[in-house]
């Protein structure tokens, strides 16, 4: 009944020569949750191909920008210690620098109830392969990732904005947006001024 095959780790490792970081857990009902971090983002398509062959469904994708470790930012550079400089910011499995600007992309696949999450790291402004040749369901998910971050999805068949209007600046999740701006009501005065300006003069 378990839907994640016993040899999933080796099957995925075989198509990801850069390496994978694999972990698996099951809840009390035996439903499995698998996490697969890719050392190389270009292994995403071959790994997704294996999951596609197993009958997986691409359930969700999630992009995020993991913050840089706080303690390193607080450190003053005047110390001049080589060891410190050598450590640098924390890096992902696979070596992508986690300086607060790189992206962590999580692809959640469903295998008849079990969940396999494949994680790839991409530098800011970088590219990742589209999964649309394998999964039709990647279409909207990838469009959403592209409109929230300065991320390019290679070979996406329809890279238009999904929800956010094209007139709004790109990569909204990479900026601090004040709540008042978010709800388009910076202040009563500001809103009226905007309307009056559009009308071309005072009321």
């Amino acid at each position: 009944m378990t839907r994640v095959p016993e040899d999933l780790e080796s099957r995925l490792a075989a198509v990801a020569p850069g390496g994978i970081d694999y972990s698996e857990a099951a809840d009390v009902h035996g439903t499995k949750v698998v996490w697969v971090a890719l050392a190389d983002k270009d292994a995403l398509l071959p790994v997704a191909t294996v999951l596609h062959e197993l009958g997986a469904r691409l359930s969700m994708t999630c992009a995020s920008q993991p913050p840089a470790p706080e303690e390193e930012e607080a450190e003053e550079p005047a110390e001049g210690e080589e060891a410190k400089a050598d450590e640098g910011p924390r890096a992902s499995f696979g070596g992508t620098v986690l300086d607060g600007t790189s992206y962590e992309l999580a692809y959640h696949f469903d295998l008849d109830g079990d969940t396999v999450t494949v994680i790839a790291h991409v530098s800011q402004g970088g590219e990742i392969d589209s999964l649309t040749p394998l999964f039709r369901t990647a279409d909207w998910s990838e469009r959403e990732m592209m409109e929230l971050y300065a991320l390019t999805v290679r070979s996406h068949p329809d890279p238009r904005r999904l929800f956010i209007d094209p007139t709004i600046d790109a990569a909204v999740f990479e900026r601090l947006i004040p709540f008042s701006t978010l709800v388009n009501a910076a202040s009563t005065k500001g809103l009226w001024e905007k309307i009056l300006n559009k009308k071309g003069g005072a009321a």
């Binding site: 359930s59 969700m60 999630c62 995020s64 993991p66 913050p67 999580a106 959640h108 969940t115 999450t117």
Partner: peptide, 19 residues
């Protein structure tokens, strides 16, 4: 309905995503 939650040492989540 699926939720992905990632937390760090802050009281606020690092990322919440749902589909």
């Amino acid at each position: 309905l699926i939720y992905y939650l990632k937390t760090n040492d802050n009281p606020e989540p690092e990322r919440v995503k749902w589909r």
